[in-house]
């Protein structure tokens, strides 16, 4: 019962802050609401007993990526409300398209059984011990390939970002 209430509270915070990301005028406010939504998602991970993902989500998303966004906005001085408006017809069409997408997504997965998420006696798969075992036995090749990906990303960022 307690976790159900917590789930709905976190969901309301998550959906509200996500809507505010889209509908606020200033980009800095969008970034701050996005940080709130990332914390709500971390709460959901804790509710799913996935502590490692919750911590990594806060460190990577709310820590690193949002700082990058904030620095870009502040360095480029983009916090202006002079964004030109799209026509109202385009906005209405966009909202209708999004609602159709949601109906399609929910309807296609409607036939799934309504079982509770956790009904196992051993529900420690989200702990760092089990994830580390899985990461370094089954997924060791992708794990090493991510280092190559990061190296490529560093080189690409430096090449794009430097002045000619």
């Amino acid at each position: 019962m307690f976790s159900t209430i917590l789930f709905y509270v976190l969901s309301v915070i998550l959906v509200f802050s996500s809507l505010m990301v889209v509908f606020t005028k200033k980009p800095v406010n969008s970034v701050l609401f996005l940080i709130v939504s990332f914390f709500a998602i971390s709460g959901h991970y804790i509710l799913l007993n996935a502590q490692f993902l919750a911590v990594v989500n806060i460190i990577v998303y709310a820590g690193a990526i949002m700082v990058l966004f904030l620095f870009t906005i502040m360095l480029l001085n983009l916090n202006k409300e002079t964004e030109p408006k799209k026509p109202v017809l385009i906005k209405i069409i966009a909202v209708i398209t999004g609602c159709l997408l949601a109906i399609t997504l929910i309807g296609s997965l409607k036939g799934i059984d309504n079982a509770p998420v956790q009904n196992f006696s051993d529900n420690s798969i989200g702990l760092i011990k089990n994830l580390g075992k899985s990461l370094f036995t089954d997924f060791v090749v992708p794990f090493e390939l991510t280092s190559v990906l990061f190296l490529a990303s560093i080189v690409g960022t430096l090449m794009i970002g430097k002045k000619e």
């Binding site: 983009l78 906005k91 909202v95």
Partner: peptide, 15 residues
């Protein structure tokens, strides 16, 4: 869906 609507509605590339 909110993410898709954000891509379709906004014109600021960062958002």
């Amino acid at each position: 869906t909110i993410g898709v609507m954000g891509v379709l509605i906004r014109r600021n590339a960062i958002v």
